[in-house]
């Protein structure tokens, strides 16, 4: 492999999807946020807004 080819390969931008998949802490953020928002926060909001029986 020539020097130029090596340089070209190194300069090639890393795809966004691969950057996401290569970042464990971003994945941790996604894995905590999505279920927290859609399952816990949404669910808890529905429960606390149930009217109290009179």
């Amino acid at each position: 492999m020539s020097q130029n080819e090596t340089t070209d390969a190194d300069d090639e931008p890393i795809p966004v999807m691969q950057q996401i998949l290569d970042n464990p802490f971003l994945l941790l953020f996604i894995g905590i946020t999505v279920p927290t928002v859609f399952y816990i926060v949404w669910g808890v909001m529905e429960i606390v807004t149930i009217p109290v029986a009179k």
Binding site: I20, I30, G31, Y39
Partner: peptide, 23 residues
């Protein structure tokens, strides 16, 4: 695996499908 990370935990709701109080 990314789909697991984002969405797998949501299945917890199926235990509450017969519960009143959740829409």
């Amino acid at each position: 695996f990314l789909l697991y990370i984002a969405f797998l935990q949501l299945a917890s709701a199926h235990h509450l499908l017969s519960d009143p109080g959740l829409s």
